[in-house]
Simulated assay, not measured.
Amino acid sequence: MTTTPPRTTASIASAHRAQDDASTCLPKAYRETVMFTIHNDANACADDQRRYHRLVEAALPLAAGLSRLPLPEHITVRIATRDQFVTWQGEHNVLLAGKAIDSLDLGAVQSRMFKATAKAAAFKGRAVAARFAPMVQGAIIWRPDGPDLVVMPASHAESRGTDRFLTCVFAHEITHLVQLELNPALAYAPARCALQDQKARRATDDRRTPAAVTEGHAAWVQSRASELLCGVATRKHLPDEPAPTELFTQLTSEFPMARTYDRGEQLVAAAFTYGGHALIERLLKDEVLLPTNRELQEPEIWLNRHQDASGTALVS
């Protein structure tokens, strides 16, 4: 039986010590009250529900303070089973592909063709989602009424994630919600840019990877959140934390987006160094600033190409 706990008010400027530490980097403008609702679609035990409530509450000031961007007024968290996640992921992919196609100047026939192709690809993608679900620690899944933060107790059992680890993971995911609050088009930017680059016949090195920006920014926040909480900037387990299962470790090593996360984090770190939060915000808002695959490998090329945006040019 699915239960829905009552809506909860979380003050992002309060809570325990970790949040107090985070509040030192939290501008007054972001010390607001955020509503979040937890839906227990997986019929998780009460202890899991309480833990997720506590960790989401702890992650809110980290995401807001480190991104320097306003949080949404309301966040929906869904505790899901792996099967639910796989189903929702497929629906998410179809929904966002449709938004991407609708955002382009395509004829009716071509739009229908692309949407049919996206639906078929989403069906095939279910196998990939099912395979990697045990390593997914959190995900933003678009539903018809907007994006939800989805968490899976079964996957957290695989990671054996501590409170520190999962708080930083949730800060990563909440950062995605912050990005979407700033620029809703980021949700379907990967599909939109892929279609545009395909139509323009761009070479692989010249194609854009919006996911590297969104995931890189969220990964950058996640690493810095860990640094605030324990002094170590990392997205991984610490040596003194419980080791994850062999399945989690194997899937993590095989995850096809791992390099995108790493390179994206490096690009965002470079953007922050040369332009601060203002340049990161522009990067998230302006499609023209999206890096190419070549620029992801060498952020200096991107910085020099956009020196007007950063205000600083690197010497080649």
Score class of each variant (00 low, 15 high):
217 H>C: 11
130 A>I: 01
158 E>W: 00
193 C>T: 12
205 D>T: 13
183 N>G: 04
162 T>C: 04
148 D>K: 07
135 M>A: 03
126 R>S: 09
135 M>I: 07
142 W>Y: 13
157 A>K: 08
120 A>W: 06
133 A>E: 10
129 A>W: 07
142 W>M: 15
126 R>K: 15
205 D>A: 15
145 D>W: 01
202 R>K: 15
193 C>G: 01
207 R>V: 02
175 T>W: 07
215 E>L: 09
213 V>W: 03
153 P>T: 01
150 V>P: 00
147 P>K: 05
148 D>I: 05
199 K>E: 11
139 A>S: 15
142 W>S: 14
207 R>L: 03
162 T>W: 01
197 D>Y: 02
180 L>H: 09
212 A>R: 07
199 K>T: 12
215 E>R: 03
146 G>H: 06
211 A>D: 12
201 R>Q: 13
135 M>H: 03
173 E>A: 04
215 E>G: 01
202 R>H: 12
159 S>W: 01
140 I>Q: 06
174 I>K: 00
171 A>I: 13
142 W>L: 10
123 F>E: 11
211 A>N: 10
154 A>C: 10
155 S>D: 01
124 K>M: 14
170 F>P: 06
178 V>F: 06
127 A>K: 15
155 S>C: 00
163 D>T: 11
138 G>Q: 07
127 A>R: 15
168 C>G: 00
211 A>T: 13
171 A>Q: 09
208 R>W: 03
131 R>Y: 14
184 P>D: 10
141 I>P: 05
144 P>W: 07
157 A>G: 08
141 I>E: 04
154 A>H: 00
215 E>F: 11
154 A>P: 04
152 M>L: 08
139 A>V: 11
171 A>N: 08
178 V>P: 05
159 S>Q: 01
176 H>S: 06
167 T>N: 02
136 V>G: 00
141 I>W: 05
145 D>F: 10
191 A>T: 11
144 P>A: 08
195 L>P: 04
212 A>T: 03
177 L>Q: 14
155 S>V: 01
200 A>I: 02
139 A>E: 14
177 L>N: 03
176 H>V: 10
158 E>T: 07
141 I>K: 04
160 R>L: 05
140 I>G: 01
143 R>W: 07
137 Q>N: 14
193 C>A: 13
122 A>V: 13
118 A>L: 06
195 L>G: 08
160 R>S: 02
